[in-house]
Write a protein that binds this DNA or RNA. Structure first.
Length: 660
DNA sequence: AGAAGGTTGTTCAA
DNA sequence: TTGAACAACCTTCT
C-alpha cells in the first residue's frame, strides 16, 4: 500500500531565508503535496523562537523569560526579516506566504498538525541549550500526534553536536582546538540551491485556487482554537517581561495576541505597534534576506578588502554608517544570511585577489570560526553557559552587582539592588554617561543603532568588568542583550567571559586604555563627536579626556564638564591598579562557577581575604569638582556611601549566616 | 614536565 | 616603526 503524500509544516526559527537552507531543502525533498511555511509568535517572550529561547511552558521556564531583554531594534529587525521572508515566499509561489500564528509553539503546533492534516514538521536545528530543550518538548508532542520531525543543521559551519562529540564532550576553549577538530571533519558544506517552487499550503482535498481563499480556509480550520491566555500582562506572571527592560520604550497597548492568526490580516506579520512600540524611522540596519545578500555581494566585489581583512586592525572608531567590519552579524544571527554561503563567497573573493592574504583566525572566515567555537562551547556546557553560577568554565570573581539567588539556588528576579555606587556606575555605563567619551560614544551608538564594532565591545566590556567598574559581566551581557540586534546566546556570553578574563582568555594584565586605545585608530575622535555631540567642539588633544581640559578650553568648546558632560565616574588608573590586584587574588583562589564555595556563598569572603578589599566601592569625587550641579550624580554625601557599605555588609553577613 | 602559543594592550626607548 | 618590559595568566602540544 502506498503511503500518503507528505504534508509538511516548515517551522522557521533561526533561518529567515530561502537561499542555502539545508532544512528547507530536506522539506522539499519529501516531495510534499502541501507546504505550510510557519512562524510561531510566542506570547511570553515575543521573539523567542528566533532567539532560540524557551517558551513559557511552565514556571521554571518563565524564570528564563524574566532575564531576557529585547529592545526595539531587535524586534524591528526581526519583523522586517519576517516580512521580507514572506515576500520571498510569495515571489516563488504567489499563493503562499509566511503563516504567522500567535501562540505557544508547544500548544499551537499540535493543533495545527491536526487541523491542517500535517504529517511532517521540518526545521533548522537549533543547537542552543534553550532551543534544544524546547525542541525536545515539541518532539514528544510530535510522537503523540504521529507527526515525523526532520531537523537539519544549518545555523553554523559545523554541527556543534558533532564537534562536541569529536571533542569528547568538552567545550572548545581555544580557536586552534576548534580548528584542529573541524580540520578532520572536512570542508564546510557548499551552499544548496534556493527553491524554484513551493507547494501550496492547502487543506486536504481543498480545491481553492485564489490566494485569499486559501488563507481564509486555513483560518477557518483554526476557528475555535483558544487564544493563548498567557499574555505577559495578565495572571500570576503579571510582569510585562519585555516592557520592564525596554526603558519606557513600550507605551502602546500590546495587541498582537488578540487573535491566533492575525484576524482580518490573515496570518500577517505583527507590527511594531502591536508589540507596544512605535516605528523607528531612523533605523540604519534593516532586516531581511535581500539586503543581506546584497551586502555580502557588495563586500565580495572588493576582493582586496575580503582577502586582506584583519580583525585586530579594523577600526572601532568608525561607526555604523561606514563600518570597518562587514555588519553582517545581525543577518547571520537571524539566519537571513547563510553562514556557509558567506564562507564560500568570501573564499571565492579571496581566490580572486593577487597578493598577500590574511588567514584564520584574524581573517573574515576566522571570525565565522569563532562563532562556531562559542556555539560548540555552549553546546558542551548547556544552560549554565550564559551565567556565572554553575558554569564550570567561568572563573569566579567577587564582582559587584552579581546575579542574586535564593537559598534553593533559584535566581531572584528582578535582581535586588546592589551597592549604590556600583548601581549608579552601571546606570551611567548603560546610558553613556560615564564621563569617558570613548565608552560613552560606543554605548550611545549601541543604544541608538543596535550595533557596536567588535573592538568597541571589547573596550566597554573590559571597562565594566575587570578594568574599572568591577561589575559582573552578567550585567553587561544583559545590556548587550537588550540593545544589540545581533545578540546571540553563545557568542555574547562567550565574549563577555573572554573580556572579563572569566574564560577563554586569561591575560588580565593586558587592558584597553580609555584614551590610548581609541587614539591608536583615530586621534581626532570622530566617533565621540558623532555620538557625544556636546563634546563636538573640543580640541583633539582633549577629545578622549575632556575633564583634563582647562576651564577656558571647556568654555570655548561650549561644554562645561560637570554641567554639560559628566565628570569621570571613577579614576581610570587607580581602579585599574586595584582591579589587577583583585584579579590576581581571584586567579589564586581558583574558584569556578560550579565550585562548592561559589554555590554555598563562601567564595567572596575567601577571595577578599586574599586581596584585602571589603565592602562596596567608594564614591569617586573628581578632584576639584564642585559637589553640587554634577550631571552624573557624583558628589553624593559621604553618609550615603557609608550607608550603602553598611547595608551591603549587613546583607553579606546575613547571607553567610544563612548558607552555612 | 616544560615549552610554545594565545585573533585584537601600553608605554617607553631606540 | 620595532622591540622589550611590564608581571606572569591560561591551554595545548611535545
Amino acid at each position: 500500500m502506498a503511503s500518503p503524500k507528505p504534508r509538511v509544516c516548515y517551522w522557521f526559527r533561526t533561518d529567515l531565508r530561502l537561499h542555502d537552507s539545508p532544512a528547507l531543502a530536506a522539506a522539499l525533498n519529501l516531495k510534499p503535496e502541501a507546504l505550510f511555511p510557519l512562524w510561531c509568535w510566542d506570547p511570553n517572550v515575543n521573539a523567542c523562537c528566533s532567539l532560540g529561547l524557551e517558551s513559557g511552558v511552565n514556571r521554571a521556564f518563565l524564570q528564563y523569560v524574566y532575564k531576557h531583554r529585547v529592545g526595539v531594534h531587535r524586534f524591528r529587525f526581526l519583523l522586517e526579516s519576517m516580512t521580507v521572508l514572506s515576500d520571498q515566499i510569495s515571489a516563488i509561489q504567489p499563493n503562499s506566504k509566511l503563516l504567522v500564528v500567535r501562540g505557544e509553539p508547544v500548544e499551537l503546533l499540535p493543533i495545527l498538525w491536526k487541523k491542517w492534516g500535517i504529517s511532517h514538521l521540518v526545521f533548522e536545528k537549533d543547537p542552543s541549550a534553550y532551543g534544544r530543550r524546547r525542541d525536545a518538548i515539541v518532539l514528544k508532542a510530535a510522537k503523540l500526534a504521529n507527526v515525523t520531525i526532520v531537523s537539519v543543521q544549518g545555523h553554523h559551519l559545523y554541527d556543534p553536536e558533532l564537534v562536541t562529540l569529536k571533542n569528547k564532550g568538552k567545550p572548545t576553549m581555544t580557536i586552534t582546538s576548534l580548528q584542529n577538530i573541524v580540520k578532520k571533519m572536512g570542508n564546510v558544506p557548499k551552499p544548496v540551491a534556493s527553491p524554484k517552487e513551493l507547494p501550496l499550503p492547502l487543506l486536504k482535498g481543498s480545491t481553492k485556487t485564489e490566494r485569499k481563499d486559501i488563507f481564509l480556509e486555513l483560518s477557518n480550520a483554526l476557528r475555535g482554537t483558544p487564544i493563548f491566555s498567557g499574555n505577559c500582562l495578565e495572571g500570576d506572571t503579571a510582569v510585562d517581561l519585555n516592557s520592564a527592560s525596554l526603558g519606557g520604550e513600550r507605551h502602546l497597548p500590546v495587541t498582537c495576541y488578540e487573535t491566533v492568526d492575525g484576524g482580518d490580516a490573515l496570518f500577517s506579520v505583527p507590527t511594531l505597534e502591536s508589540l507596544g512600540m512605535s516605528e523607528d524611522k531612523e533605523a540604519k540596519i534593516k532586516g531581511g534576506e535581500v539586503i543581506a545578500l546584497k551586502r555580502l555581494a557588495t563586500l565580495c566585489d572588493d576582493s582586496k578588502y575580503i582577502a586582506t581583512f584583519s580583525k585586530p586592525k579594523s577600526s572601532p572608531a568608525q561607526w555604523v554608517d561606514k563600518p570597518s567590519t562587514t555588519l553582517l552579524s545581525p543577518y547571520l544571527k537571524f539566519g537571513c544570511l547563510s553562514i556557509r554561503k558567506m564562507w564560500w563567497d568570501v573564499e571565492e573573493a579571496k581566490q580572486r585577489y593577487i597578493g598577500a592574504k590574511t588567514e584564520p583566525p584574524e581573517n573574515l572566515n576566522g571570525q565565522l570560526l569563532f562563532r562556531d567555537m562559542y556555539a560548540c562551547a555552549e553546546y558542551a556546557i548547556g544552560d549554565a553557559f550564559g551565567k556565572v553560577r554553575g558554569n564550570e568554565i567561568c572563573r569566579y570573581m567577587d564582582w559587584n552587582l552579581p546575579t542574586v539567588y535564593d537559598e534553593s539556588g533559584v535566581e531572584i528576579v528582578p535582581r535586588p539592588p546592589g551597592d549604590s555606587v556600583s548601581e549608579s556606575r552601571l546606570k551611567a555605563f548603560k546610558d553613556g554617561q560615564t564621563g569617558f567619551p570613548w565608552i560613552d560614544a560606543q554605548m550611545r551608538q549601541l543604544k541608538q543603532e543596535g550595533w557596536m564594532h567588535h573592538l568597541g565591545r571589547h573596550s566597554v566590556a573590559a571597562f565594566l568588568t575587570r578594568g574599572q567598574c568591577w561589575i559582573s559581566w552578567e550585567r553587561g551581557a544583559e545590556i548587550f542583550d537588550e540593545y544589540l540586534i545581533d545578540w546571540d546566546p553563545c557568542s555574547n556570553p562567550g565574549n563577555w567571559m573572554w573580556l572579563s578574563c572569566s574564560a577563554f582568555y586569561a591575560q588580565y594584565f593586558k587592558l584597553y586604555g580609555l584614551v590610548s586605545f581609541p587614539q591608536k585608530y583615530d586621534k581626532t575622535g570622530a566617533l565621540v563627536r558623532k555620538y557625544c555631540p556636546e563634546l563636538a567642539k573640543y580640541p583633539d588633544a582633549y577629545i578622549y579626556e575632556p575633564h583634563k581640559a582647562p576651564a577656558n578650553v571647556q568654555k570655548q568648546a561650549g561644554c562645561i564638564i560637570g554641567t554639560d558632560y559628566p565628570y569621570p565616574i571613577l579614576d581610570e588608573k587607580n581602579s585599574k591598579d586595584e582591579n589587577m590586584a583583585r584579579m590576581k587574588a581571584c586567579y589564586e583562589a581558583k574558584f569556578y562557577g560550579n565550585s562548592k564555595e561559589v554555590l554555598d556563598g563562601t567564595a567572596n569572603a575567601l577571595i577578599q581575604q586574599l586581596h584585602g578589599l571589603k565592602g562596596a566601592p567608594k564614591e569617586y569625587v573628581f578632584p576639584g569638582s564642585q559637589k553640587s550641579g554634577s550631571a552624573s550624580g557624583s558628589g553624593k554625601k559621604e553618609s550615603k556611601t557609608l550607608d550603602g557599605w553598611l547595608k551591603r555588609k549587613a546583607n553579606s553577613d546575613e547571607d553567610g549566616g544563612r548558607k552555612k
